[in-house]
Amino acid sequence: MTAGHDDRHCAAPSPSALMEAEVLTNTEVAAGLWRLRLGMPQWSRSEPSPGQFVMVRVSDDGDPLLGRPFGIAGFWLHGPTAEMEIIFRVVGKGTGFMTRWSSGSPVRLLGPLGNGFPLPPLGSRCILVAGGVGLPPLLALARSLESGGRGGDVLLLYGEANRDRMLDLDTLPDLGVRFATCTEDGSCGREGLVTDLLAAAEIGEDSLVYACGPAPMMRAVHERVSGRCLDSFYSLESRMACGFGVCAGCAVEVREGDEWTYVRVCSEGPVFSGDLLTERSFRQA
């Protein structure tokens, strides 16, 4: 296994549970934010639901060793083949390597994994709150609601630090939902935090809130909307080793009656109902 960090590839060892994919395009769409489109010649599983994720193998030579979890931002089936979109921010070694992938690079991944967002009951309104790179799974949810004819019920709120880091939502022709954006420095959209956008939005008993982003942001959303809406759902992050439930490495604390317990973000989550979460759940995420 000396595949190295470039695009040269040795045949995947067999048998393997990983799916073979090929990079269609990999482009930097904002500062440090990349949009990776993968083609899968053979898609034999059920279609992923919004909020599910994949474990991406970054290297075959053991460095980095572990797979990296990424939310599925978009998915399209074309007969037996499929196309998957991942949107990633460069934060370290693994995501750094991923920027070197270009059209034709082979990629191996495990998934789809975890439980996605429960779909809203008919007649409810959905507020999607995305902080930074928490956007991808909510894009998948918005796209899925839109293609199910429910785009009109959706309001997507998206906040970033500044304009440079922001994905321009107007470049996604299939999004088809109302959205509002904000930046901390006011360089794009409203100035402030995404929770300020949320404060300005109408939340009622027919509203469902879906959130994904940095832990402090999700905690603020949880505090604001709990008890004021029909239900709220949070896609949590945690350090993961396996991504499919066998290592217990991704534990996060949740409510269990009057007590608490640890659950696995990868297999009981990553999406949890707000009813289960406490302030500590976000501190650990």
Binding site: D63, L65, R239, C247, G249, E253, Q284
Partner: peptide
């Protein structure tokens, strides 16, 4: 119940766990 998170961290060609 096991240990508080974080429970895993990657290291060069390995990982540390405190499950």
């Amino acid at each position: 119940r096991g240990n508080p998170p974080p429970r895993v961290v990657e290291t060069p060609a390995g990982m540390l766990n405190s499950i």
